[in-house]
């Protein structure tokens, strides 16, 4: 099997991304949703690195690092928000937090 490495890497990234997407759509537990966001971010980072190796430039890897930093910040803020939500609603069900409806 002689698959182009970029193609293979991109396919892997795509599969991981879609798996994360399915999870975020299906899950109601807000921690699982945060987890799914992590999966998707990771997949995007992978795609950047694959692209970086395809073009032989450092930009993709730089982006990966930014994604990493962003994920770290996002998780910390996200967890704090979940904590507040848990205190307010006494549940982790994201459908409970639907007061802002039209």
């Amino acid at each position: 099997m002689n698959v182009h490495p970029t193609t293979a890497g991109m396919l892997l990234a795509g599969v991981l991304f879609v798996l994360g997407l399915i999870s975020i759509l299906v899950r109601r537990d807000i921690i699982f949703m945060l987890l799914s966001v992590e999966i998707m971010l990771n997949a995007a980072g992978l795609a950047f690195v694959v692209a970086s190796s395809h073009w032989g430039t450092a930009d993709g890897q730089v982006m990966f690092m930014f994604i990493l930093a962003m994920a770290a910040a996002e998780v910390s803020v996200g967890l704090a928000l979940i904590l507040q939500l848990y205190h307010q609603l006494k549940t982790l069900d994201s459908d409970e937090a639907s007061k802002m409806n039209g």
Partner: peptide
């Protein structure tokens, strides 16, 4: 990542993602 010629990124993945972020989630 390592196989795509980004060993440093692989290391960061292990340290930051698997190491720090996931551990944070687990503790939480």
């Amino acid at each position: 990542l390592y196989m795509y010629g980004a060993p440093f990124m692989a290391a960061l993945e292990v340290i930051v993602y698997a190491g720090a972020i996931m551990v944070l989630l687990i503790f939480f």
